[in-house]
């Protein structure tokens, strides 16, 4: 890591030295998101970013009285892109975990939902136990808490990792994989669509705090305490003034903030 950090640092110093004055202005906050994780963040038919994360991000920006700009970034490269300064914050349903905290800082959570397992409708599986899921083909999006969960809790299953959620959905629908693990909300939302008619939720899983962490937070570069404090305050503000609830109710019938 340190090698690239040093290079990044050198690059950053150069950029600051060259672009000096311009960089000093209270610039926009650039927010990185994935755009492939409905209903939390996705691109609609016209290519516009939509979803719970996006609406929350907009509400937070309004609360912070800041101007925000969204950057769409592949999930795999999300944290490196943040560190490289392509954007200033990640609002993309990123769970707060120990592994990630070594790389970035997180605000307090802005929602928390449990993981679940989806299977084809004709599946004979009885439950979400390691015994039942034994030697099956289990799909997950790579670099997620869900893939880590599958690796730790279902070590005998043949884990298949996909760059985006779209791809494991395709493979679950075609029956190439026997089960998929993801956020219960993401799976339910997909199952309600035409493409998801193939499948059903087998059951939700008990989150493991060591893997799943306290929920999804906003990731920012380490040491940027000022920005972190602003985001934390904004989360509290939208929780208090009802904006959060309005957004929540536009997407879900239950409270995603969690206990």
């Amino acid at each position: 890591m340190s090698f690239f950090k040093r290079i990044a640092l050198a690059a950053a110093v150069t950029v600051i030295a060259v672009g000096g004055a311009a960089a000093q202005e209270p610039a926009k906050i650039r927010i990185g998101t994935e755009g492939a994780y409905p209903p939390f963040n996705f691109l609609d038919a016209s290519g516009e970013l939509k979803g719970f994360d996006v609406d929350i991000a907009k509400a937070l920006c309004t609360a912070m009285q800041a101007e925000c700009e969204f950057v769409v970034q592949d999930w795999d490269g999300m944290i490196p892109a943040l560190q490289a300064g392509k954007f200033d914050a990640i609002i993309a349903s990123m769970s707060i975990t120990e592994e990630r905290l070594k790389q970035v800082d997180f605000t307090s959570k802005y929602y928390n939902t449990p993981p679940a397992i989806a299977v084809p409708k004709d599946s004979t599986l009885a439950g979400v136990t390691p015994e039942e899921l034994g030697s099956l083909q289990l799909g997950a999006q790579s670099s997620t808490t869900h893939s880590n969960y599958a690796e730790e809790k279902f070590p005998d299953a043949a884990l298949k990792l996909y760059p985006t959620a779209e791809e494991y959905k395709l493979d679950l629908a075609s029956g190439r994989i026997d089960a998929a693990i993801d956020d219960v909300v993401v799976l339910s939302e997909w199952l309600a669509t035409e493409e998801g008619a193939c499948c059903k939720i087998l059951g939700t899983l008990t989150p493991d705090p060591a893997i799943n962490g306290p929920g999804a937070g906003i990731a920012i570069r380490q040491g940027e305490t000022e920005l972190k404090a602003k985001f934390d305050a904004a989360i509290e503000a939208i929780r208090a003034d009802g904006t959060y609830k309005t957004i929540n109710d536009a997407y879900f019938q239950f409270d995603v903030y969690g206990g």
Binding site: F3, S142, L161
Partner: peptide, 15 residues
């Protein structure tokens, strides 16, 4: 490459 991506996803280490 697949294993590398998996390693990277756990460590975030460019090594």
């Amino acid at each position: 490459m697949g294993e590398t991506r998996r390693i990277f996803s756990r460590t975030f280490d460019f090594e």
